[in-house]
Amino acid sequence: MSDEILSLAERKRLRAKKIKKHGLANILTHWFNVASWVILLSTGLALLANPNLRIMPQGYIDFFSHLFGGVGQLVQAHKVFGLIWLFVISYNVLLGFRRYFVPFARKRMLLTSDDLSWFREYGKKLLGLKYHLPPQDAYNAGQKAFGYVVILGTVTIGLTGLIMTFAYLLPLELRGIVQWLRPLHFLAVGGIVTGLVIHVYMAAFFPEEKSAFFSMFNGDVDALYARLHHKKWYEDKLKEERAYELKVRLEELEAREAETPETEKQATA
């Protein structure tokens, strides 16, 4: 968040102005991911039934086991839902790989010097010290870091899950890797869940991020939020806006020129 002071009028103007942050595909993918995570995490936790691995209470495990008609079906359900999740996510990423994902990764995800100082300053903030947060791009450094955890974690979860689901196709000598894939699967999930605690809190409870929360429904954030929290991105957007206006104006000019009657032109000549 930027600590610059803005006039009330300016705030009101900016708050009313909407800037597009998320496309429909992005929004749908996010909420599909949320739903999948709810199902997969809850069934996954229910699968950790062995007393040595158990995280949830017996009642929770029994509930899910009964809900799905037995541990076997619970495992199968987890696998089936996991495969659906993996397919949809991979399909979406691949579909928009060149148009969306590559530019996204290049423009939004690379860490800058500002990001590094953001971490430093945010640490000061957490410690209650005096801090000055540098201007941030579309995603702040914390979000970027979580993004990396999510991307890495998703790939790990997907790959380990996929291999474990089809482990019976592996040659006999390689089947033992399942013993390592399970902890890895768990580790990746755990990593994301750790980040998710902040992600969910920030989005659902943190007042400053209210605009971001709603952007996951309608795709827009208000300009004030953008200006305060993602100044670099906001300025980019403004630049884009101006460039667009310029372009539109030029086009209008050209169009008007084209509309000028031939005779008039000749006359001018």
């Binding site: 799905f68 008609g69 037995g70 079906q73 199968q76 359900a77 089936v80």
Partner: peptide, 16 residues
């Protein structure tokens, strides 16, 4: 069995 279970069974998932 529950809806989910029936759904899975119809998908050919064997039942214990």
């Amino acid at each position: 069995a529950t809806l989910a279970a029936a759904g899975l069974a119809s998908m050919g998932v064997k039942v214990a």
